[in-house]
């Protein structure tokens, strides 16, 4: 067992990681450029004025507001539904358990566009008009699994003997849940909730099918990318989106890092 990696492996790994992270630096760089018509490199000059311009744009505020509201409601729904599913799956063996597990993971296992077009087809068949709630339904559906993954991983590591001890000492099911299960589950739910929030805040593929004319922040950005107006303003918004999604992701990581609870591979 060699303790030192071969140079070629180190270089390939470093180059791969660089490829994974360097591109985002350009978003920051271009948010400060004075050139607004093209993506000229290197930027001819630097300015902070685009942050002020973005601040004064009502359409951005509206889109941001809608995104935050959708993400909050979708996350709340996902936490409730995901926790219930996790409690059932972690503690019980029953007929059809595999099928339930498949059903929970399906919304992220299938390509996002399938979920999107399926919801669109259902809305069309049932003659349901687009609204705030149609966006929320789509988001909550794929956010459930994120909460579920985190909660189920934590519940599996929680010792059943603790619950039995609590019951033996006279606590009823609700007291046990309140004083024994919830404190252990808390950070996992918080982490799952934050990841779900980040996922929903950033989602565009399913949203385009369920939003109609409404603009969430990613949809606003998408339309700016197709038909650019003030390119640096888009960059300012992009920087903001990075910040809003990065903070909950990092927080979720620190909340669950002592276990394998953050199910990164299954987004």
């Amino acid at each position: 067992m060699p303790s030192r990696p071969p140079l070629s492996v180190t270089l390939a790994a470093a180059a791969g990681l660089l490829f994974l992270h360097l591109p985002l630096a350009f978003i920051f760089l271009y948010a400060l450029t004075t050139e607004e018509k093209s993506y000229q490199f290197p930027p001819p000059g630097f300015t902070l004025k685009w942050f002020a311009v973005a601040w004064d744009r009502p359409d951005i505020w509206q889109a941001l507001g809608l995104s935050l509201r959708v993400a909050s409601v979708a996350t709340a729904l996902a936490i409730v539904l995901g926790t219930l599913a996790a409690a059932a799956m972690a503690r019980y063996r029953f007929f059809g358990r595999e099928a339930v597990s498949l059903l929970i993971t399906l919304p992220i296992a299938l390509p996002g566009i399938v979920t999107g077009i399926a919801l669109r087809a259902a809305l069309n068949l049932a003659d349901i008009p687009f609204s705030f709630w149609t966006i929320v339904i789509g988001h909550a559906t794929f956010c459930i699994v994120v909460v579920y993954n985190n909660a189920v991983a934590r519940l599996r590591r929680t010792q059943g003997s603790l619950i039995e001890a609590s019951m033996d000492l006279g606590a009823d099911g609700f007291q046990t849940f309140r004083h024994v299960v919830l404190p252990q589950l808390g950070t996992a739910l918080l982490a799952g909730g934050m990841l779900a929030f980040a996922l929903s805040f950033d989602e565009v593929i399913v949203t385009t099918f369920t939003a109609g004319q409404q603009q969430t922040l990613p949809i606003w950005m998408f339309s700016e990318l197709i038909r650019p107006r003030q390119r640096p303003v888009t960059n300012v918004v992009a920087v903001m989106v990075i910040a809003v999604t990065l903070i909950p992701i990092l927080a979720a990581y620190y909340l669950t890092r002592d276990g394998e609870a953050v199910e990164g591979a299954s987004k």
């Binding site: 990681l17 950033d202 990092l250």
Partner: peptide, 27 residues
Amino acid sequence: LLIMLPLWSSYLVRVYAWKLILAKEGV
């Protein structure tokens, strides 16, 4: 962390970064 971060961070922003990089007048 370095592998997981890009997985969860904004998809659209990450596509956009490449539009900047690959543009004819770009980097």
